[in-house]
Design a binder for these strands. Structure first.
Lengths: 152, 152
DNA sequence: TACAAATAGGATAAATTTATCTGAAATAAA
DNA sequence: TTTATTTCAGATAAATTTATCCTATTTGTA
């Protein structure tokens, strides 16, 4: 059979990025740096690809990197508390998912809406609200307490 | 700069599929068949690719095709009224977008949740509810009345 | 019957996303 | 200063999605 796309909310890169950031946050809260090797093992992702994504997070100043022996990735405690999921998503997938038109029209707005504009508005707003109000700290706490999991 | 994925809610194929189905519905409500050429012109999509997607919709019995001279694509009036957006999305992108885990975990559920499981639940439910309660007829009516648009 | 108009299907190409590899640069410690 | 460890950057490969092309098949009509 032809067509069967496997579409999900975020790109693979973004999924890895979110999980990596949470893992770094968990460790940084205990003053431990982590390497891409440890990260990719923990979140079950390809190492080299994950390293690329980490570089993007560094460039967006979401995580901090330390080169050389005993280096790795870490986050300020302050950043852990203030970084929103939306910032991570934005760094990797951009904001099209919660700001763009559901049917890909470039000029879709209240005055010139696509067929699903109004229907989508609620979903998009719900997503945006969630991403902008969820901090890494909240997610990291659940991992630490065993209430949620990063893999399997 | 490296990473910048352009992620949206549905695949391009699915966007085309939704728009094509709406256009077919609009025309079928006036007893007119339409060809892939007319469709792709109207929804501003690549013709051959759109034709492939139409075939998928035919196989899923969402639209009806008539071969040969004066053939084209059409929909029963009944189908227009009862076909939900969810059926079109399912035919092309599957249901992962509103049923799968936000972070791609295969075994993500209430008992073994990913870090964003609870946060995502609301968004996913909102999306699912919207897709399952929006009919082609509603969308086609807005196009006919000029309240919404298929392109630009 | 012959022809034109239309969908169906397979092969292939282009573009994008995902993934790997290799070497350079930085840094701590021996 | 040398070595081991680590991030950074660029090139490249693999996989998937998007897109095109070509031909077969169907069907209405002259």
């Amino acid at each position: 059979m032809w067509y069967n796309n496997t579409v999900s909310m975020f790109s693979k890169a973004c999924e890895y990025g979110i999980k990596a950031a949470i893992f770094i946050a968990v460790n940084s809260s205990e003053n431990k740096r982590v390497t891409p090797k440890e990260i990719s093992k923990e979140i079950d992702s390809p190492q080299a690809f994950t390293a690329k994504i980490l570089q993007a997070l560094v460039r967006h100043e979401i995580v901090n990197s330390v080169r050389g022996a005993h280096g790795g990735f870490e986050m300020d405690k302050g950043k852990i508390a203030t970084t929103k999921l939306s910032q991570i998503v934005y760094a990797i997938d951009g904001d099209n998912i919660y700001k763009g038109c559901g049917l890909g029209l470039h000029t879709c707005n209240e005055n010139h809406p696509c067929p699903v504009h109004d229907k989508f508005k609620i979903v998009r707003e719900e997503l945006r609200d969630m991403l902008e109000h969820t901090t890494l700290e909240q997610l990291a706490l659940d991992i630490k307490s065993g209430a949620s999991f990063l893999k399997i």
